[in-house]
Structures are given as structure tokens and as C-alpha cells.
């Protein structure tokens, strides 16, 4: 006999799943940009990247 009970916990609607996926992709892209930015600046500055005058 099939179990028709609803699963426990919070069940997201399709709209909520879609918006959460969009937000996750945006955060991933932002983190990717940050990684590329730090890499690019390290390449541009070379050893000078370690010189940090205040």
C-alpha cells in the first residue's frame, strides 16, 4: 500500500525553490568573481603583493 503521508519538515513551493536556486547561483558567481579578482591582482602586483605599508 502506498504511503501518502506528507514528508516531515518544510516543503518548498516551486517559486521558493526557483528563487533559492537563483540566489545560490548569484552567490556562487560573486564568490567566483572575488577569487578571480584576488588571483588577477596577485599576478599584477607580483612580489609587491606582500608589501603592505600602512
Amino acid at each position: 500500500m502506498a504511503d501518502n503521508r506528507q514528508p516531515d519538515g518544510i516543503v518548498l513551493t516551486e517559486a521558493q525553490k526557483k528563487s533559492r536556486r537563483q540566489r545560490s547561483i548569484a552567490i556562487a558567481l560573486a564568490l567566483g568573481v572575488l577569487v578571480v579578482l584576488f588571483f588577477a591582482v596577485t599576478m599584477v602586483k607580483g612580489p609587491a603583493v606582500l608589501v603592505r605599508p600602512m
Binding site: 513551493t13 521558493q16 526557483k18 528563487s19 537563483q22 540566489r23 548569484a26
Partner: peptide, 10 residues
């Protein structure tokens, strides 16, 4: 409350 905010809202 489960957010439905999309990227455009942010």
C-alpha cells in the same frame, strides 16, 4: 518565513 526574493529584489 521562506523567502521568495529573487536576484532582482537584491
Amino acid at each position: 518565513r521562506i523567502s521568495e526574493a529573487d536576484v532582482a529584489d537584491y
